[in-house]
């Protein structure tokens, strides 16, 4: 699905990613953990194509396409989805209008007909139920006046609507209470198939009780320094990151 080789990226001249390697296959769930400032959110932003970052070295293959050559919107249209750590408010634009525009732009890119209003509304009903999102929120302005939990559920709702190949969840668990966490996890698990993949970026092990990863990676100082099975997350929770620093000799 996605192969990242020796990725270096910097912002304002400061290097954040320093030779990151990662491979994610279809059907897999990967968790990326790491201390603050390790480069987790930078990785998400760079993959999504935020222009603030400069890629100085490396390559990213996304299902046979050179991801780094593509515009952010084309990456999205090719099936890359980022659940934002801080979802953005767009006043006056209804969630429904926003999603319908997105779906039809993606369809146009693929040379498909726009989705009919009827089909669209049926999909909205089905997918909003999945994340227990109040139907009223669907017609409110994008994220405006949403609680923290509602914003995160709205991200998963959008993911359900857009059916991406690769979803990157950037600290989707931050600020969620246990019920919201369960709902978000249920949404992600329900959407999982053997054709798509999920990368979960998180600080805490607790999300991984609900979304069980096939692999856990430790991102430290701009590189993946350790990869292990889901138990690695428990070990990190228990021991912190210091033993990893020692292990890699720092």
């Amino acid at each position: 699905m996605i192969t990242i080789k020796n990725l270096h990226a910097s912002i304002n001249g400061k290097e954040i990613l320093k030779g990151l390697n990662l491979e994610v296959k279809a059907g897999e769930v990967h968790a990326i953990m790491g201390p603050n400032g390790a480069g987790k959110s930078t990785l998400a932003s760079v993959l999504a194509g935020r222009s603030d970052y400069e890629i100085t070295e490396g390559e990213v293959d996304f299902d046979g396409i050179d991801l780094l050559e593509m515009s952010p919107e084309d990456r999205a249209r090719e099936g890359l989805f980022l659940a934002f750590q801080y979802p953005v408010e767009i006043p006056g634009v209804s969630n429904i209008n926003f999603l319908r525009t997105a779906i039809n732009e993606i369809r146009a890119y693929k040379g498909e007909e726009p989705m009919s209003a009827k089909e669209f509304m049926a999909t909205v009903r089905e997918k909003s139920a999945l994340v227990e999102l109040d139907a009223k929120l669907a017609s409110r302005s994008v994220n405006e006046g949403f609680s923290g939990g509602e914003k995160k559920r709205n991200e998963i709702f959008q993911m359900a609507m857009l059916e991406p190949k690769l979803a990157i969840l950037d600290e989707t668990d931050s600020g969620l209470d246990i019920d919201a966490l369960r709902i978000v996890a249920k949404g992600v698990n329900t959407l999982k198939t053997d054709k798509n993949a999920t990368v979960v970026i998180t600080h805490y092990q607790r999300l991984l009780d609900h979304i069980v990863p096939d692999f856990v990676h430790v991102l430290y100082d701009g590189k993946i320094v350790k990869t292990g099975p889901k138990e690695l997350a428990l070990e990190l929770e228990e021991k912190g990151y210091d033993w990893i620093k020692e292990e890699i000799g720092q």
Binding site: A48, P72, E73, A76, P87, V88, F98, L99, I106, Y109
Partner: peptide, 9 residues
């Protein structure tokens, strides 16, 4: 950027 990331030009 939020719009772009959803596939909107």
């Amino acid at each position: 950027f939020y719009c772009l990331q959803r596939g909107i030009s």
